[in-house]
Computed example of a mutant assay.
Amino acid sequence: MVVAILFFTREEYTRQVLFVSFLMSLGWFYLAFFLGRRYRRMKLGVVPVGRVGELEPTPDIELRSLTHPDLGGVRYDGVVADLHAEELSPEWERFLARCTLHHIPVYHVRQIQESMSGRVRIEHLTENEYGSLLPSLSYQGVKRFIDLVAALLLLPLLAPIMLATAIAIRLDSPGPALFIQRRMGFRAVPFRVYKFRSMYMDQKGLGFTAGDDDPRITRVGRFIRKYRLDELPQLFNVIKGEMSFIGPRPESMELSDWYERDVPFFSYRHVVRPGISGWAQVEQGYAAEVDGMTTKLQYDFYYIKHFSLWLDILIAFKTLKTIVTGYGSR
């Protein structure tokens, strides 16, 4: 608005002052936003019928059960109700209508569950909810362009680190520096994923990492797994279009066939390109592959449902935090 006013009124200004003013304003608003998030809890009124008992408060959200169809003069950020509950009486329905008329947001319990947990429950998907999981085709194209450009820019910068990692792996244990494995990819098309080898060549396992003290992991392997250096060769998968920087982690063919039989809706996670990092990785950390796959899939469905640039940016920042702290590595 300031730029438009200066432009149309032809007032004199300097670009330096305008740019510095913009940065100061941006810094001030971000500071206010983060301070508000830190010291203020969202307060939600809960209509005590149906499945609202499954909700649990979090450090950022306070849940207050309403005893009767009235807010009692308390200022709420929104009202939560199970809009499909048979016990929802006409009095409560009129109360929810009044809230909407007074611009107080009314949320369905499942919507709040997803927002608080970062997961989409897949046990009872309706036909409408299944349709809402279709990712944006236009953003898929934009994302592919961003992935390609970013991978081409990062490759020469990360090449020295990749070379040093490969040398360390060869010196630490016998075998090749790269580990190549067939995995299930975009639209259920198999592809070969590239990783730095982090395990001994002469030891067999279950097809997934068994725990923190898995004896198959080498000394160098433990380090590169902790700081995600073993994932760097997947830049070539991104350039080839087989993977993205952000998306559900690709599973091996054996595990994919296993999950197809035992985990409902598993194949739907292939509707987007698999990623080097993903929502499940930054929120859940490493999952014990079989036991944690249903929860992992709920995180993947949340990512697909909210497939957007802003969620990818959030995951990118959380991934940087994961790399620095080593959280969730195995």
Rank of each mutant, 00 (worst) to 15 (best):
Y302I: 01
L206K: 14
G328N: 09
R183D: 12
F33H: 11
S25Y: 12
V106Q: 10
E289N: 09
R182C: 06
V17D: 10
T218Y: 01
R273A: 05
G278H: 04
V80R: 04
S65V: 14
I323G: 03
G78V: 08
Y30G: 11
L133M: 15
F29R: 14
L178G: 09
F179C: 10
V80C: 11
S136F: 12
E283R: 15
V17H: 08
T100V: 13
D172M: 03
E127S: 13
G73S: 02
L171N: 13
A151C: 10
F208M: 06
K296W: 04
R38C: 07
V149N: 10
K321G: 15
A210R: 00
L66D: 11
S267L: 12
W310R: 10
G247A: 07
A4D: 06
D82E: 09
P69N: 04
S267E: 08
M184N: 05
E289Q: 09
Y130I: 15
Y286F: 07
S252W: 04
Y107Q: 11
V282L: 01
I112F: 14
L148H: 05
I169C: 06
F8Y: 12
R249Y: 12
S132E: 14
R222W: 05
C99H: 00
L125Y: 08
D77V: 01
A316N: 02
M293T: 12
V263P: 00
L232K: 09
I169W: 08
D202A: 06
I323C: 07
L320A: 14
D262K: 13
R51M: 05
V106A: 06
S277C: 07
M1C: 05
I246R: 03
L311P: 06
W92R: 02
E260W: 05
L44S: 02
P135C: 08
L309T: 02
L134Y: 14
A188V: 08
V47Q: 04
L314Q: 11
Y30R: 04
M293E: 01
D291G: 03
H84W: 05
G292I: 01
F34L: 12
E289C: 06
L297Q: 02
P48V: 07
P190R: 04
V49T: 12
Y286C: 00
S256I: 01
Q16E: 13
R192W: 05
F223V: 08
G118T: 15
Y259V: 04
G328A: 03
G247F: 00
N128Y: 09
Y227V: 13
M1T: 05
P48M: 09
R38V: 06
T126E: 10
H68W: 05
E12Y: 08
T165A: 15
G221L: 07
L314K: 13
A32H: 10
V52R: 07
L44A: 00
R269M: 02
G45E: 03
Y194R: 09
V2D: 01
